[in-house]
Design a protein around this nucleic acid. Structure first.
Lengths: 205, 205
DNA sequence: GTCTATATGCGGATAGAC
DNA sequence: GTCTATCCGCATATAGAC
């Protein structure tokens, strides 16, 4: 990692706990192992570091659904085999993957926390947060469930409503256990129950 | 309102947008209409103002279920008539009341925002936030739904799981529309759909 | 690209007059 | 209980040597 990358990385860690204003340039420099004045050779201001984080996050968004083991929009074969093989345990696994990816992926989880803290202060940060954690996830799953209704795997129901019932427990548990990482097992247990109930409600036959 | 109360009130408003560190004692004093030095005749420190807010919040928690139109634990008659009369529209109304109370009540909504921002910085604040918005709500509704299952209004199902499906969309929508108050109508529309689906799933007969 | 030194301003808090 | 004046420390950022 270059010094510049290290700065961005350490800044994200500090912003995600102390917030932007609550993080001093000196604390970032300390974490990197340079003097605060040296940092200004890499970035012209503290704000520019935050802007870099936001830009990086935008570029990550596209890669995410892949990382969660979901079929890509353009890969028809993979999608077909995915839908065909879906059963209760696979659905549980899918929800776990989404939950744990958001909770544990070093970049995403720190961005979740920073977005939470900075939502009323930094509109740029909030826009990414909202897109990623509130809009994309539900839209993606609505598409998924819509397809599964079509293929007769799930009963007739509004895919949007289904997606909300699938995703909002994940969102809630992320909120709750981001601050309580030692008890992730509790969260997974609760999520397991919700998803099995979800499957019971919507499975066909 | 006494000056002391005004200070607490304005401080909560400012903390809920700028955070604790992001709010200056001078900005609180300005909002109240006194000099920053005068404020120290009422509170010995900025921290003491925050502590007062937290203490006030704790004392408010007990009153909340009443404010949301739910039957009190000790009022048997009211509870019976409440359960007996429950239908789809009443359930929609109940969810709307909870949602709008959390979103619009001046004290609670500002505390929600402050709690969101301060959760990684101020454990005292977070403890109230978690209790109020993550634990009590679900526990209360689990009790409610458990009773309704007993009375044969709802089908056999785990009341805890039902409560999570009832509450997490509310929680999600609060997160989303706290930052977008002009579009509350969108939120209510979405909530309406979720609750009607909930009723469809769990009603008996 | 790293350092030391420094400019400048702001924030929390206190002292003491009225 | 309000004000003015002030202390002290810290934060962002710049200048300039190496």
């Amino acid at each position: 990692m270059t010094t510049k990358e290290k700065i961005v990385d350490e800044a994200l860690s500090l912003f995600s706990v102390n917030g932007y204003k609550g993080t001093t340039v000196k604390s970032i420099a300390d974490a990197v192992g340079i003097k605060d004045s040296s940092l200004y050779k890499h970035f012209k201001s503290k704000q520019e570091i935050l802007d870099t984080i936001v830009a990086t996050m935008w570029s990550h968004i596209a890669d995410m659904s892949n990382a969660m083991g979901l079929p890509a929009d353009d890969d028809v074969e993979q999608a077909v085999s995915f839908y065909a093989s879906l059963d209760e345990n696979l659905l549980v696994e899918l929800s776990n993957q989404i939950f744990l990816f958001y909770l544990k992926d070093s970049f995403v989880s720190r961005f979740w926390r920073m977005g939470t803290i900075e939502q009323f202060q930094n509109p740029e940060v909030y826009r990414v947060f909202r897109k990623l954690f509130m809009e994309e996830s539900i839209a993606y799953q609505a598409g998924l469930f819509g397809e599964m209704v079509k293929q007769g795997i799930f009963i007739e129901a509004d895919p949007q409503v289904m997606a909300v019932y699938f995703y909002t427990p994940i969102y809630f548990l992320l909120s709750k256990y981001t601050n309580d990482l030692e008890h992730t097992d509790e969260a997974l247990e609760m999520l397991d129950k919700q998803v099995r109930e979800f499957y019971r409600i919507y499975r066909k036959g």
